[in-house]
Simulated scan of single mutants.
Amino acid sequence: MPVDAISLEVFKNMFISVSEEMGVALQRTSYSTNMKERQDFSCALFNPAAEMVAQAAHQPVHLGAMPASVQAALQTFPRGLRPGDIIILNDPYMGGSHLPDITLVAAAYTDGPDGKQLIGYVSNRGHHSDVGGMAPGSMPLSTELYQEGLIIPPLKLSRGGRINHEVIALICRNSRTPDDRQGDLAAQIASIRVGEKRLSEIAERYGLDETHEHMDALLDYSERLTRRRITEIPTAPTASTTTWTTMA
């Protein structure tokens, strides 16, 4: 089916709904005040090229940097992510923000004639209230990154659906609030599983090719809108055209 204005709107809202449902799952299953009450988390959906396709109305500071974290995760594991794999990271030099913001990334697949076929990626980022460091809350007046807390490079939190509990234990052991860390990480994992399932359902219902076509069309549409809006920004006055008013 060719992409038209109606089908694009339908797919756009389906993609957004995946991100929104991920956020609902994360909030309802989280433990800490940061995530359950303050809703300091974000969820988004990416195409196979790790380009953000849709996001929920969550935290802009998370969503702006999240694509770099997804790309860093895929670069660290160049053979790709298998079904059930989840990558965890918080390194600010790999797309993170500050260390309390921990990101999870996973791939969503659908069944094809030659086996599992990649649909895209789902990701979430949540602010954990303490990941170690020199001060409670892990947001000290520090002079170097190492004082802020535990730095997590891209690691496999889950392999083929089997959770790596050693990674969770390491994070919890470095936190002043380990129970909250364990609960919030479990909530992020649950959110990722919801995203995988919902994205797979879209591809199974409409087909992989059509799903990818609408992902690409949505990015093209967003680019056109952005470029048009930029052209509408008034030109700033130059020094030669500026009139200054002086006071007597």
Rank of each mutant, 00 (worst) to 15 (best):
54 A>M: 07
54 A>T: 08
55 Q>N: 07
55 Q>V: 07
56 A>F: 03
57 A>S: 12
57 A>Q: 14
58 H>Q: 09
59 Q>H: 01
61 V>S: 12
61 V>F: 15
62 H>F: 07
62 H>P: 05
63 L>I: 13
63 L>D: 05
69 S>Y: 04
69 S>F: 00
69 S>E: 01
70 V>M: 07
70 V>G: 09
71 Q>A: 14
71 Q>M: 11
71 Q>R: 14
73 A>S: 15
73 A>P: 02
73 A>G: 15
75 Q>D: 14
75 Q>Y: 09
76 T>F: 04
77 F>M: 10
80 G>T: 11
81 L>Y: 06
81 L>R: 03
82 R>A: 12
83 P>D: 14
84 G>S: 08
86 I>T: 03
86 I>E: 04
87 I>Y: 01
88 I>W: 03
88 I>P: 01
89 L>M: 14
89 L>S: 14
89 L>Q: 12
90 N>K: 12
92 P>N: 07
92 P>H: 10
93 Y>S: 05
94 M>E: 13
94 M>L: 15
95 G>I: 04
95 G>C: 10
96 G>I: 07
96 G>S: 09
96 G>H: 13
97 S>N: 09
97 S>Q: 05
98 H>M: 09
98 H>Q: 08
98 H>E: 07
98 H>A: 10
99 L>A: 08
99 L>I: 14
100 P>Q: 10
100 P>Y: 13
101 D>K: 09
102 I>V: 15
102 I>E: 02
103 T>A: 10
103 T>R: 10
103 T>I: 14
104 L>V: 04
105 V>L: 03
107 A>P: 08
107 A>T: 07
107 A>C: 08
109 Y>C: 10
109 Y>A: 12
112 G>A: 12
112 G>V: 11
112 G>K: 08
112 G>F: 05
113 P>W: 02
114 D>H: 14
114 D>Q: 15
115 G>S: 12
115 G>N: 09
116 K>T: 08
116 K>R: 12
117 Q>D: 08
